[in-house]
Design a protein around this nucleic acid. Sequence first.
DNA 1: TCCAAACCCTTGGATGTCCTAGTATATTGC
DNA 2: GCAATATACTAGGACATCCAAGGGTTTGGA
Lengths: 168, 168
Amino acid sequence: MATPLPRDPIADARLNWERHGWSDVAAPMAAITAIMRTQQILLARIEGILKPFGLTFARYELLALLSFARSGALPMNKASALLQVHPTSVTNAVDRLQGAGLVIRSPHPTDGRTTLIELTQEGRTLAKRATAALNSEVFAQSGFAEQDVDQLIRILGTFRRNAGDFSE
Amino acid sequence: MATPLPRDPIADARLNWERHGWSDVAAPMAAITAIMRTQQILLARIEGILKPFGLTFARYELLALLSFARSGALPMNKASALLQVHPTSVTNAVDRLQGAGLVIRSPHPTDGRTTLIELTQEGRTLAKRATAALNSEVFAQSGFAEQDVDQLIRILGTFRRNAGDFSE
DNA sequence: TCCAAACCCTTGGATGTCCTAGTATATTGC
DNA sequence: GCAATATACTAGGACATCCAAGGGTTTGGA
């Protein structure tokens, strides 16, 4: 890890905003910038843990999603919707997972347009091991206080609902 | 925007975690996943606003940083440290900004290793206009309640400090 | 019935991020 | 003073994301 900066760059940005007369939006700017940076930190941690398994976060997410599907298989478009990424991102991830022998593409029984992604036994085993590693190395040491975790889930859940992620 | 899902996929993931006996880390997993998704939503909004200016978020951040520097110029390594991205990412952004005539590379007066990035007049003007657009179209309508913005700044600030971003 | 519209997946291209390695310049230590 | 180490930037490569466009399959309305 690099040497810590002497000052918080996001707090400084907020001061700059206020100095320029944008005080009304300085706080949301700081919050949004902090989310961007936090995501970057967390992603780096996660990828660091997954690397020994030959996985990236994108591929892990797909593997995990499949492992929770009753049949161990999902249509690509369904995976795209649930992971909330562009269909081409799923195509990309499946290409690599299939190349590694972790998933298989198979035709949908009734809809010729649709392709099913199916976990192989190897894929299921790797998903299990990778999840165990993430649980113990990242999620169990998230760096968030317990009440803060609840706050985050509440705040970001409201945000995501308002952004149109889900209706529920 | 795509049709909202009937259910929150992150809440479902949390339930899956609990069902598999990982209740102790289910909440942090959900919080971290929510951060990833929120970042994705915010980034898409920001890039949508910046697109008409011919800017991406990475390039905008660099322009904004320079516009707050007293001299309008910064060494590349300083920009890299303040933006907390890899030096090669700064090289990439500077290449494109320079190609668009928004910044200029100039040699450091005393250290031959260092390259200074300097805003052009055009760059300064564009930074101002882009900031105004982001302020009114994104930050002023962040979708977070005012108290939640404060909570986010507090929670993520603590997290970033613990992660080694800054010492202060 | 049949064709247009809708839907699903893939290909190709643009960007951004990181890592590794290489070149050039400074600084340190003997 | 000079060699070894550290620092600064860039080139090349691997991945991920999105968008635009294309080809195949289904669906729905005339």
